[in-house]
């Protein structure tokens, strides 16, 4: 890794912005903003009104096609569709599965990323570089392929079972279980987390680590008191991005998970298409979005914190 070392102190100084406001800047920022407002903001807003039982206007067609549509009974709408979803036993299982997978996979991804990052920062060498390069492979593999490859690998006639049966060991069929979803989400989330964490750890100046060594601190203590606190911002960012990505994942649970319970991403699609209950589908999307927003707040907090620490605010 030949990355240029950014000094923690220098970074804060360099990022200081000239305090002038620019109209041109605002205009330049408009195109992507308008695109997102129109094709994300607007549909999401319309969908939100739909979930509250506004069935006229743009929601008319969907309301006619869909089943179990709730119409608003108050001026602000109705929570009937939300009640539907929350009382649906399928949803309860899916929600638990989704949250559990998100939590477990994110934790494992972060631990792996920390392991590799610390290994590279403290010991380094060729082996560490090879290792990091290896973990980047999933970044370049389309999710569809990854999902399918993992599916066949852990399937009933897959490699794992073939291999272990040579020794007379009955390896379980992982494919179509919740564990397979976890494997898939970890597999696809690894590169980004490793990039964030590794680069965060690499940007810690040598001297800060060596001083701790000089002061008598051992390996574990240095990790605990110097490395992790100093790289906490990228670690939190890696964690939140990973969690948000996993929360909304669709292809991985579709290919790898069981029919029931599965992750909400798949269920949103099922409710929208197969079960033809669009309103409930949208409600689920908002529940996932609400969870993601909670995680996003942690992300924003981490960014603000890092800005404060380097004196940018």
């Amino acid at each position: 890794m030949t990355s240029t070392k950014t000094d923690v102190v220098a970074e804060g100084l360099g990022a200081a912005k000239a305090p002038r406001l620019s109209v041109v800047g605002f205009l330049m920022a408009l195109p992507p903003l308008l695109l997102v407002l129109f094709f994300v903001g607007l549909p999401v807003l319309i969908a939100f009104t739909f979930s509250l039982g506004f069935t006229t206007g743009p929601n008319r067609v969907l309301s006619m096609i869909g089943q179990e549509i709730h119409k608003k009974d108050q001026w602000w709408g109705t929570f009937s569709a939300y009640k539907d979803v929350i009382h649906d036993p399928r949803f309860a299982g899916d929600m638990r599965t989704t949250l559990a997978i998100t939590f477990i996979s994110t934790t494992l991804v972060l631990l792996m990323a920390l392991g590799i990052g610390i290994y590279q920062r403290m010991i380094g060498g060729r082996l560490a570089s090879v290792m990091t390069a290896l973990t980047l492979v999933p970044l370049f593999v389309p999710v569809v392929i990854a999902a399918w490859a993992i599916h066949t690998f852990y399937a009933g006639d897959g490699f794992m079972r073939s291999f272990f049966s040579q020794f007379g060991i009955e390896f379980p069929t992982v494919t179509s279980t919740v564990s397979a979803i976890a494997i898939g989400t970890i597999w696809t989330s690894l590169p980004f987390a490793i990039l964030m964490v590794t680069s965060g750890l690499q940007s810690i100046p040598d001297a800060l680590i060596e001083t701790a060594q000089d002061a008598g601190a051992g390996f574990i203590r240095i990790i605990r008191t110097v490395l992790i606190p100093l790289a906490i911002t990228p670690i939190v960012i890696a964690g939140t991005f990973t969690a948000i990505g996993i929360l909304g994942s669709f292809t991985i649970p579709l290919f790898l998970g069981p029919n029931q319970p599965t992750m909400l991403g798949v269920e949103i699609s099922n409710f929208f298409g197969a079960y033809n209950r669009p309103q409930q589908s949208i409600v689920m999307a908002f529940i996932v979005f609400a969870s993601a927003s909670g995680i996003a707040l942690i992300y924003i907090w981490a960014n603000v914190r890092s800005a404060k620490q380097s004196g940018r605010i």
């Binding site: 923690v8 100046p205 800060l208 060596e210 001083t211 002061a215 110097v226 606190p229 620490q309």
Partner: peptide, 12 residues
């Protein structure tokens, strides 16, 4: 005990 060129104080 060593004092480093950039002091190497832990910012956190």
């Amino acid at each position: 005990a060593m004092v480093f060129q950039n002091y190497a104080l832990w910012p956190h």
